[in-house]
Amino acid sequence: MLISQSVQEKLINEINEHFQDALVKHEVLYDMFTITLKREAVAPLIRHLYNHEEFKFKFLTNLCGLHYPNQKNQELGLMYQLHSFENNYRIRIKTFFPINDPVIATVTDIFNAANWMERQEYDFFGIEFKGHPNLKRILNVDDMTIFPMRKEYPAEDQARKDKNDIMFGR
């Protein structure tokens, strides 16, 4: 899945040329070339790569939220994974932002598939996508007040004693 060294360099040059200071870092994680960007640049860059004559990243494979409570002012994050069928390039784009300001531009105007993917990340991480046509909870109940995939909500402790459940036992 890893793209070659020359393509990686070309991609970095492309980003530096069109989006100054947007690139935070780039690395190869196992078999995927990963770029970390500032959040303002994410949606414009994805659109740029979508329309790009050579790269043609026309497919959004995956989108998922991340939460690192210990990163000061960079607690929440998003991971986008793009795929160019024609060249068989796969890249991963990451971005991080503070938890009290979890707003990022939507990519639903580029990919229809992003609609539910973004709703899912809103549902679980509380990331707000600016410009999303229908941003509401998708898998959880509508009147839920928390964002359950955040790390401050641990999955239930198997050994907890405060529940008295006669029917199913504990």
């Binding site: 995956n62 998922c64 939460h67 229809n112 598939a113 609609n115 539910w116 899912q120």
Partner: peptide
């Protein structure tokens, strides 16, 4: 963190 890319979830929105 574990995320499943579930094909059904993504194409069912169409």
């Amino acid at each position: 963190r574990l995320h499943f890319r579930r094909p059904c979830f993504i194409y069912y929105q169409a």
